[in-house]
């Protein structure tokens, strides 16, 4: 059973602001029935003051989806549109006394509905929807992923799935998620220390491990080979390699080159791959 906070249970059992506002000035719809959760948010805005007078929701989804929607409406009522837009999915989760990691996508859905409703009110397109769809299963764009990764300081594909659902279906988009993550991590690292996603040693090892498990190993296995991570020591990544014709030194070299290429692209251009011999 999920461990929900009392506040989540309260908002689930006694949801606030259910329905549709009297005068719809902005409307945001995210998710879909097939994806397992969907939210329709409507807002009524005092245009003089740019103030959200009323907000109501309709939600199909689990307890945390309903609670996140209810919390969102409570949080934005009485705020100016700009103030409301500053709310992040983390704020929603915090308002509820936290959400299980696997349920963070519910808070993201709330934030996205808000963004969509405001865009609709202002008559501008939604930013996140403008990117390219990366995950076909859940219709998640790269722009959306990038935003969530930055706001929540995510470092692994697993986290991206927990927060956006991307990767939680067929899994085909995982290599792409890995690339997006790597790109953002590089950028953040370049922005200097103290930045959210600075590449610590631990994070780097995690990334290497994940790149090998989710991307490199499947590619090798498809061709009858395999790879296992043995150790990470500074720039050196120690692995055991198995090729289709494992005894052939030429094929071994191509294998090692392939692994090096992938790891450099995904994690760190400095990486040196060495084969481990027991």
């Amino acid at each position: 059973m999920w461990e929900y906070s009392d506040k989540v249970m309260d908002h689930f059992e006694n949801p606030r602001n259910v329905g549709v506002v009297g005068r719809i000035d902005g409307e945001g719809q995210v998710g879909s029935l097939s994806c397992g959760d969907a939210l329709r948010l409507t807002i009524q805005v005092d245009k003089e003051k740019d103030l959200i007078e009323d907000a109501k929701f309709q939600t199909f989804g689990c307890a945390s989806a309903i609670a996140s929607s209810s919390a969102l409406t409570e949080m934005i009522k009485g705020k100016t549109v700009d103030e409301a837009l500053a709310i992040t999915n983390q704020d929603i989760a915090e308002f509820l006394g936290g959400l299980p990691r696997e349920k963070m996508h519910c808070s993201v859905m709330g934030q996205e509905a808000l963004e969509a409703a405001v865009a609709n009110y202002r008559g501008v397109p939604v930013k996140a929807a403008q990117g390219d769809v990366v995950c076909k299963c859940f219709g998640v764009t790269d722009a959306e992923i990038e935003k969530v990764v930055r706001v929540n300081r995510l470092t692994t594909v697993e986290e991206v799935t927990q927060f956006t659902k991307a990767g939680g279906g067929c899994g085909q988009c995982k290599p792409k998620l890995e690339e997006i993550l790597a790109r953002i991590l590089h950028q953040s690292a370049a922005e200097g220390p103290g930045k959210p996603a600075r590449m610590t040693a631990l994070r780097r090892i995690k990334l290497i491990e994940e790149a090998i498990n989710t991307q490199i190993a499947p590619a090798l296995i498809k061709d009858g080979g395999d790879i296992e991570l043995v150790d990470v020591d500074g720039p050196e990544v120690l692995v055991t390699l198995k090729g289709a014709c494992a005894s052939c030194p030429a094929s071994k070299q191509t294998l090692a080159d392939f692994v090096t290429d992938r790891l450099r692209a995904l994690v760190d251009p400095e990486i040196v791959v060495r084969e481990y011999h027991a």
Binding site: S32, S34, V133, K136, C137, F138, G139, C170
Partner: peptide
């Protein structure tokens, strides 16, 4: 669902 090839 507005996505194609949805495995869900």
């Amino acid at each position: 669902c507005d996505t194609d090839n949805c495995s869900v």
